[in-house]
């Protein structure tokens, strides 16, 4: 998985490509832990993300909880496979997916 981040002031855009699974989720978690200070707008681009496991969901949930406190989180480019996962796990209820 590749993580590409772009910061503009208090806005952080993160583009993920590849698989967000047990192996790669800790990378994203570390990245978020170190980058989310003073961020009030977090945007994920999932257009190039091919797979999302429960470990990935856990990181997303943490990010959502954190952004609930300090701003907003929006996910772009969710493909059909990942949308199915979001629907099946009820994440569609708590995530803002555009």
């Amino acid at each position: 998985m590749e993580i590409h981040e772009m910061k503009e002031g208090n806005k952080l855009s993160i583009t993920l490509s590849g698989r967000l699974d047990t192996i790669t989720a800790p990378d994203l978690e570390n990245k978020l832990n170190s980058s989310l200070d003073n961020i009030n707008e977090l945007i994920f681009d999932f257009s190039a993300l091919s797979y999302l496991s429960s470990a990935g969901l856990r990181v997303l949930l943490s990010a959502q909880k954190r952004m609930n406190r300090q701003g907003s989180l929006v996910i772009h480019g969710v493909n059909e496979t990942i949308m199915e996962i979001f629907e099946a796990t009820g994440f569609t209820d708590i995530l803002k997916i555009e």
Partner: peptide
């Protein structure tokens, strides 16, 4: 329609 996971919120 599934509800949200347990222990999430």
């Amino acid at each position: 329609k599934p509800g949200f996971i347990l222990a999430g919120l």
